[in-house]
Simulated scan of single mutants.
Amino acid sequence: MQTFNTSLQGKRALVTGGTKGIGKAIADELAQAGAQVIVTARNHPGEGNTAHHFIAADLTQAADVAQLVNEINTKFDGIDILINNVGGLTAPGGGFSTLTDEHWENELQLNLIAATRLDRTLLPKMLEQKSGVIIHISSVAGKLPLWNLNMAYAVSKAALNSYSKALATETASKGVRVLTVAPGATKTPPMEKFIQDFATASGISLEEGYQQLLNQVGGIPMGRMAAPEEVASLVHFLVSPAAAYLTGTSYAIDGGTLPVV
């Protein structure tokens, strides 16, 4: 019987936004598989809240990224796995007329440029060692935008998808794999706050707000949101030796939400 090697023993992994939600679940999962995990976020999660090496950094700031990479190269001599998880919805809903240049720029900085900036600084060592895996955490919004809720966010994630494919093609013959993971609705504190804010602004109950949001995306066939650990499990497989022939592809983990194949 064929067995799949999903051990990450001896691997060095960086998870951005790795102190909560999907990022924390990924960091914990990779560590359990044997990886030495580094996490970064804007603010320290507090004593006892992370078992991983923490480096504070705002990835929308080039100077912070330079300091982060310098510390990684000094202490760990590079990394083998990069999980670009930092991102989020910061622009208001309401459609095109509510979005200013600043809204667009902020969304692109957080959801696209932060990843390209970090890739650009960490890729050289991966290429030098002729091995590495980069995962971009995107969103099903990149293929299923909601004009009244997440227009700028969805556009920035669509751009991330395209960039990830281009980078994968460039590095495939050089030993570095690049993949995209696109979660749908996932039960994280930011998602719960988004639902609460939407319900409050609409003057409806939390349950009604959740149902209205589900209706806008056509529902979730599985009938529930994903757990962060389920996204982490997929990421673990993709960065492992078991997925050695996978690159340049995008994986939706959305309970069947996307209405297309």
Rank of each mutant, 00 (worst) to 15 (best):
Q2F: 13
Q2T: 06
N5W: 01
S7K: 14
L8H: 07
Q9G: 03
G10A: 13
A13W: 06
L14W: 03
G21H: 09
G21P: 10
G23M: 10
A25L: 13
A27V: 05
A27D: 09
D28G: 04
E29F: 00
E29G: 05
Q32S: 15
G34M: 10
A35G: 14
V37L: 09
A41Y: 11
R42P: 06
G48Y: 08
G48T: 07
G48V: 11
G48K: 09
T50Q: 13
T50P: 14
I55A: 12
D58L: 01
L59N: 09
A62W: 03
V65I: 15
A66T: 07
I72F: 04
G78H: 00
D80R: 05
G87M: 02
G88R: 07
G88Q: 05
L89I: 01
A91F: 00
A91D: 03
G94K: 04
S97F: 00
T98Q: 14
L99S: 02
L99V: 00
E102P: 00
H103Q: 05
H103K: 02
N106M: 00
E107N: 04
E107G: 00
L110M: 02
R117M: 04
L118H: 02
L122R: 01
M126L: 05
V133S: 03
I137C: 03
I137Q: 03
S138E: 04
S138N: 09
S139R: 01
G142Y: 07
K143Q: 11
K143Y: 06
L144V: 08
L144F: 04
P145T: 04
L146Y: 00
S156A: 15
K157A: 11
A159C: 02
N161L: 10
S162N: 06
S164A: 07
A166K: 08
T169Y: 11
T169D: 09
T171D: 01
A172P: 02
A172V: 14
G175C: 03
V176S: 02
R177K: 07
A182C: 13
A182Y: 06
P183S: 11
P183C: 07
A185K: 08
A185F: 15
P190C: 08
M191E: 15
E192A: 12
I195M: 08
D197I: 08
T200G: 04
A201K: 11
A201I: 02
S205N: 11
E207V: 12
G209P: 12
Q211G: 10
N215Q: 14
Q216L: 15
Q216N: 15
G219T: 09
I220A: 12
I220W: 11
M225W: 15
M225D: 05
A227F: 08
V231G: 04
V231I: 15
S233G: 12
S233T: 15
L234R: 11
L234N: 10
L234F: 10
V235E: 08
F237C: 11
F237P: 14
L238Y: 06
A243S: 08
L246D: 01
T247V: 06
G248I: 14
G248S: 09
S250I: 05
A252S: 15
I253P: 09
D254R: 03
P259N: 15
V261K: 15
